[in-house]
């Protein structure tokens, strides 16, 4: 478990990082918090020729709310996200990530770029219909959550692109529930629920290659009140809507049952959790 040889470039700014990725001819990889990449290197499952370290790039660790949207820099650490109160859903989800040591290093953009369908923040990005800002050799572009995630550990980012910032609209009400074998593990199933006005978005992690946006049909609108019956109907609809795989930690049927339970928990929480007006 020692990584294969690579060269190392410490980027001074975004342009430098993008240039270094371009020079690597598709063999470059961004090193941010390293919480997923370094184990993959140690297992020799990732073999980049160049590691582009963006940790010293200035200006990527800010958090600010404008017009009901949290704008977060790519290097915002999970611990920072967990401690802010502008976006309570993102804060709650970040608290479920790993352990303190992991949260103090891991970054928001790193988690999104890694695109693990069991991870918390990709589910939150999709539940909030957020977007990422991307810099590449051709300039910058904005990618919506629905376009970013392509499959398990696959995003639509080009090998020469890096995420520079994240937009997370702040929901009017929210809920988050997760079931994992141990505290800090990747979820077997997680659910992020967000309400914007009368629009309800429920995203299930751990049941597909990407965070799964539940299509609840006519139930997608929500006038603010969520009765227990309504929660149960929505939870059952979510369970019907997923087609999860089976693996060591649970069968498809078990994941479907957990989807119903976690959706119910998240929506029950949502019914009682409103984002403070101060945001």
């Amino acid at each position: 478990m020692k990584c294969p040889p690579f060269s190392y470039h410490r980027a001074t700014d975004v342009a430098d990082a993008v240039a270094a990725l371009g020079a690597a001819d598709g063999e470059g990889k961004i090193l941010a918090g390293g919480q997923s990449l370094v184990p993959l290197l140690a297992l020799r499952l990732a073999r980049p020729a160049v590691l582009v370290d963006v940790n010293r790039v200035p200006g990527l660790d800010g958090l600010v709310v404008r017009d009901g949207v949290l704008h977060a820099g790519a290097l915002v650490r999970h611990l920072h996200l967990a401690g802010q109160d502008h976006h309570p859903l993102a804060a709650e989800a970040a608290r479920w990530i790993g352990h303190t040591a992991i949260r103090s290093r891991g970054t928001l953009a790193g988690s999104l770029a890694h695109a693990d369908p069991s991870a918390e923040l990709p589910a939150v990005l999709r539940a909030c219909d957020g977007a990422v800002h991307v810099a590449g050799p051709g300039g910058t572009r904005r990618l919506g959550a629905d376009e970013l995630f392509v499959g398990a550990l696959q995003s639509s980012l080009a090998e020469t692109e890096m995420i520079t910032g994240v937009e997370l609209p702040v929901p009017d009400a929210w809920g988050f529930a997760e079931f994992a074998r141990r505290h800090g593990d990747f979820a077997i199933v997680s659910v992020a629920a967000a309400r914007f006005g009368d629009r309800l978005r429920v995203v299930v992690g751990g049941v597909a290659g990407v965070p799964h946006l539940v299509d609840p049909g006519d139930l997608a609108t929500c006038d603010g009140g969520l009765s227990a019956d309504r929660v149960a109907i929505l939870a059952a609809a979510a369970a019907d809507d997923v087609d999860p795989p089976s693996d060591l930690h649970g069968s498809a049927g078990y994941r479907r049952a957990l989807t119903e339970q976690m959706t119910a928990r998240a929506l029950t929480q949502l019914a009682g959790h409103r984002t403070p007006e101060a945001a």
Binding site: P39, R181, R182, H183, G184, D185, F186, L248, H249
Partner: peptide, 16 residues
């Protein structure tokens, strides 16, 4: 072996 790392081979921690 399907449980080749501590990601899949789960050991209890102080939390469990």
């Amino acid at each position: 072996l399907s449980t080749g790392t501590l990601l899949d081979y789960l050991m209890p921690t102080a939390g469990e």
